[in-house]
């Protein structure tokens, strides 16, 4: 698919999704669509850095939580409107991305070490938010209920739908643009071979910084949305490992470094967990077991994700992995 067709397809897909509020009248079903879009947003955020930039992060909760806490704290402690909080949340998360990126990329951390350090940063933030007062410490923050669109609290799910739809669409358009720009070309070059990219004049540090900030920004938006949708936050929700895992699982299942991968992954994951709930019931942990199994299976057998599998079936060519053999161990 060339770039123009991808854009067309993107518009068509989001256009179809936009019909959901018209077709779906049941709030609980619309909720599934909303949560799927939200997961796609989070996954696409991760995908910018992990899929296009090749920097696997285990700590995307750092950005998510920062966005969520920004909007909640501004509201609860300072009475600032959450729409303004949305902007602040996105940029605050991008700033956290810049800080983590600077600390890691400046010193050449890559691969597993990068992953572990990002996890440690998220943990530090979790403990901090657990220990200071203005985040409500361990008790958490309850955003006062005040239903009105001006207050980013909609009376019906449809309002939330349009917000998450717009945010997710914006993220996907951004990623389309990445796939069709100098920045994106350089980012993917750094991912595939950093030395070769630098030899061709690519400033790897700058490019990775750009990616981590963009990635942080969109993850922060997802956090803002989460806070407004559920109106409650605590350190475990905001900075806990579950968010970090979800944000990497979605694009890995859907296809890392592909435009539509996060949407496929989000739809697949939510479909699966709904299915498992229907079949097995609400047993604790079972849907997470499925997630774990999926992660293992995908990395082991389908390293290019559902998107790679789809293009493989279409072209009939072998779906070999992007990664070079023989460079690593075991």
């Amino acid at each position: 698919m060339n770039q123009a067709n991808k854009l067309l397809m993107l518009i068509v897909v989001f256009g179809l999704i936009a019909l959901a509020p018209m077709l779906i009248t049941q709030e609980s079903l619309l909720n599934i669509v909303i949560m799927t879009l939200y997961a796609a947003l989070l996954g696409q955020a991760w995908n910018i850095l992990g899929g296009y930039g090749g920097q696997v992060s285990f700590g995307h909760a750092a950005y998510f939580g920062t966005g969520a806490y920004a909007v909640a704290v501004l509201q609860v402690q300072f009475g600032i409107n959450p729409w303004l909080g949305l902007v602040v949340g996105g940029f605050a998360a991008a700033a956290v991305g810049a800080f983590i990126g600077f600390c890691t990329f400046r010193y050449g951390l890559r691969g597993s070490y990068f992953a572990l350090v990002t996890l440690a940063f998220a943990e530090v933030l979790r403990i901090l938010s657990n220990s200071v007062d203005f985040t409500g410490a361990g008790v958490g923050l309850l955003i006062p209920l005040e239903r009105s669109a001006a207050n980013f609290q909609f009376a019906s799910k449809e309002g939330f739908f349009w917000v998450i739809w717009a945010m997710t669409f914006a993220a996907f358009l951004t990623v389309w643009k990445i796939g069709n720009s100098r920045f994106g070309a350089q980012l993917m070059a750094v991912r595939d071979n950093e030395d070769a990219a630098r030899a061709l004049g690519v400033d790897a540090f700058r490019v990775k910084m750009g990616a981590i900030m963009l990635s942080g920004f969109f993850a922060g938006l997802a956090g803002v949305f989460y806070a407004q949708y559920f109106l409650y936050l605590d350190p475990h929700i905001a900075y806990g490992a579950a968010i970090s895992v979800e944000s990497l699982l979605v694009p890995i299942i859907g296809g890392m470094g592909t435009l539509f991968g996060p949407l496929l992954g989000a739809a697949f994951l939510h479909g699966l967990s709904e299915l498992s709930r229907a079949v097995i019931g609400d047993a604790p942990g079972i849907s997470l077991v499925l997630y774990g199994v999926l992660l293992v299976v995908m990395v082991l057998f389908v390293p290019r994700g559902l998107a790679g599998l789809a293009s493989h079936l279409r072209s009939g060519k072998p779906a070999e992995s992007r990664v070079e053999e023989g460079k690593g161990h075991a």
């Binding site: 100098r182 070309a185 350089q186 993917m188 070059a189 595939d192 071979n193 030395d195 070769a196 990219a197 030899a199 061709l200 004049g201 690519v202 992007r322 990664v323 070079e324």
Partner: peptide
């Protein structure tokens, strides 16, 4: 040789052109 494996020949060369 250090190709950007997984990218096409055109995309590989374009990385240079983008300088």
């Amino acid at each position: 040789v250090q190709p950007f494996a997984g990218q096409t020949v055109r995309e590989n060369i374009a990385v240079g052109a983008h300088l």
